[in-house]
């Protein structure tokens, strides 16, 4: 059964983020989306990686796994494979998604399991005191030192095969909540890359994010089912970040277990096991 108020989804654990951290906005929007979608905490699993943003699982009253840095996606898919009736949400930072976990991200995207993935993208590793991550905008300046140019998360996800790709902003909780709700309602791999801030360590990107104007994607004119158009939009260089749904497509999800989801030790199928042993008779 879902809970009525978003505050009911919060545990009473003390939130440990720095004041002004973008992750607060994501936590609020997520709980709000949970209550509006009516998610039953017992039937919901929030799987995270490791890092500042991955602490979010401690603050939400669902089942949760605080996983390993970069491994949240396969762990979450494992949960879903074992029990397809669960709602499985993955959350973590940009280091999780695009650095140590980049391999998993690409392959989970092309497989399209029914997972919702929230990336809290603040361009840095906050927990280890602010080293640039693969999405650090400031890398444009550091490019000549071999750091390279930043990843374009939306373009990467569209090409890899994600079937719902959106971008949100942590300081715009209402539109973020709506995007999360849309992602939760999508069947398949749905990703919201959330531009977020780390006021403690990433002042450069923080400044660029703090400008109030965003470019909102026109839902009426953007052909959201057209992959090439979505990619074009994602690759178009603009002075302000775009927010909204870039791409949405229906595509099959991997086979789910036909039966026995989350079951007890089952010793049924004895007949089938007997037949398998018959096949091994010389």
């Amino acid at each position: 059964m879902g809970l009525k108020y978003r505050t009911e989804y919060r545990t009473d654990r003390k939130v440990t983020w720095c004041p002004g951290c973008g992750d607060f906005g994501v936590l609020d929007a997520l709980c709000d989306a949970f209550s509006r979608t009516g998610l039953d905490p017992a039937q919901t699993v929030l799987v995270t990686g490791n890092g500042c943003s991955s602490m979010i699982g401690f603050f939400v009253k669902t089942y949760a796994m605080h996983g390993l840095h970069g491994r949240a996606l396969p762990m979450a898919w494992g949960v879903k494979l074992a029990n397809p009736s669960l709602k499985v949400i993955v959350a973590g930072g940009d280091g999780d998604a695009f650095a140590v976990g980049a391999g998993h991200l690409v392959h989970i995207a092309r497989r399209n399991p029914d997972l919702t993935y929230l990336i809290m993208d603040n361009g840095c590793y906050g927990l280890t005191r602010g080293q640039p991550s693969p999405t650090a905008r400031r890398q444009i300046m550091a490019g000549e030192n071999g750091v390279g140019q930043p990843i374009n998360p939306v373009a990467l996800l569209i090409t890899a095969g994600a079937t719902f790709v959106a971008q949100g902003y942590s300081e715009d909780p209402k539109s973020l909540r709506l995007l999360i709700q849309e992602a939760l309602n999508h069947r398949g791999f749905a990703v919201v890359n959330i531009l977020s801030s780390c006021p403690t360590f990433n002042r450069q990107d923080e400044a660029s994010l703090n400008r109030p104007e965003f470019l909102y994607i026109e839902t009426t004119s953007h052909p959201v089912h057209d992959r090439l158009e979505a990619l074009r939009l994602a690759m178009t260089e603009e002075d302000r970040p775009r927010v909204g749904v870039f791409y949405r497509k229906k595509r099959g999800v991997p086979d789910e277990r036909p039966k026995g989801a989350g079951s007890e030790d089952r010793r049924d199928d004895l007949t089938r096991l007997g037949e398998m042993m018959d096949e091994l008779r010389p």
Partner: peptide, 9 residues
Amino acid sequence: SLAIGVSYA
């Protein structure tokens, strides 16, 4: 990682 998620569930 998959196996850990499966067993958790």
